[in-house]
């Protein structure tokens, strides 16, 4: 009955019943759609985690190669001075990233894209004395390594955002499935039972009324019959001395006084 489970605080009327039914339908459609969205996102999510795993391993190798090329530089230049020199001469980033968006079932996933600005070169004079070739090679190696890192970073960002979005979507799916739909169903059940109750009440009342009417009619009949008999018996008395029968008022409004305007 209406006591079982939570329901919305509504008046049990037919209009509200209609509203609740359309709400239930909407909730079911939304549930289906969200479920599908969640599945699509999860599929993407798994793909991304797999790629992250691969990219992390690749990064390990790439960074190793890059570190080796840097060791070559220090060896060729001879002395740790070059490292300090490089740190001090860094002024403007040549290697930058920009973000672009990718749409996965309504979720915008930002992806980093690396680009190099032309023109400014902070390390133009680095390794001028000796080891210039090694410095050049090292820069290229590291540029490739950083590209790998940027790729990995965009995967990771997508991972973090997708993780969050999937959580939100799943929470919604569960809320609709376990809270909203049962609640609406309960409300519909409550309204139906309440309306049935009203119907029964109405039917009973009508029956009562018609019974009463019948009884009243029967009583009136009996009375009329008695009246008639009485009238018949007194008709003889109503014959006046001229022998005329006093006519009875046919309209039956002998009690009403005549209205005179």
């Amino acid at each position: 009955m209406s006591g079982a489970g939570a329901r919305e605080a509504v008046f049990p009327t037919r209009q509200v019943l209609g509203q609740m039914k359309s709400k239930l339908k909407g909730a079911q459609t939304g549930h289906d759609l969200l479920k599908r969205k969640s599945e699509a996102l999860t599929k993407r999510f798994r793909e991304i985690t797999r790629r992250i795993d691969e990219a992390k391993r690749k990064m390990g190798r790439v960074m190793q190669i890059a570190a080796f090329s840097l060791a070559e530089v220090t060896y060729a230049v001879g002395g740790g001075n070059i490292l300090y020199q490089i740190q001090e001469s860094a002024k403007q980033a040549r290697f930058r990233v920009r973000t672009k968006q990718e749409n996965v079932s309504g979720v915008f996933l930002p992806a980093f894209e690396s680009f190099t600005t032309e023109g400014n070169n902070d390390f133009g004079l680095t390794g001028l004395g000796k080891g210039g070739q090694q410095v050049q090679r090292c820069r290229e190696t590291y540029a490739r390594a950083v590209e790998t890192l940027v790729e990995l970073a965009s995967l990771q960002t997508a991972f973090v955002i997708l993780d969050e979005v999937i959580k939100v979507v799943n929470r919604r799916v569960n809320a609709i499935e376990h809270v909203i739909i049962p609640k609406t169903e309960n409300t519909i059940k409550y309204i139906n039972s309440e309306l049935d109750e009203l119907d029964r009440e109405e039917f009973y009342r009508l029956k009562k009324v018609s019974n009463k009417k019948e009884r009243d009619a029967a009583a009136a009949d009996v009375e009329r019959e008695a009246q008639k008999k009485k009238d018949d018996s007194s008709d003889e008395d109503n014959v006046d001395e001229e022998g005329r029968m006093q006519t009875k008022d046919l309209l039956g409004d002998q009690d009403n006084e005549d209205v005179i305007f």
Partner: peptide
């Protein structure tokens, strides 16, 4: 507006990444 990379690392890693051109002051 995010367009730079930041590095926290030992001397070799930082130097290498700076050579790639990520450094910005």
């Amino acid at each position: 507006d995010r367009q730079f990379l930041a590095v926290i690392g030992d001397e070799d890693s930082v130097t290498g990444l700076l050579l790639a051109g990520v450094g910005h002051v």
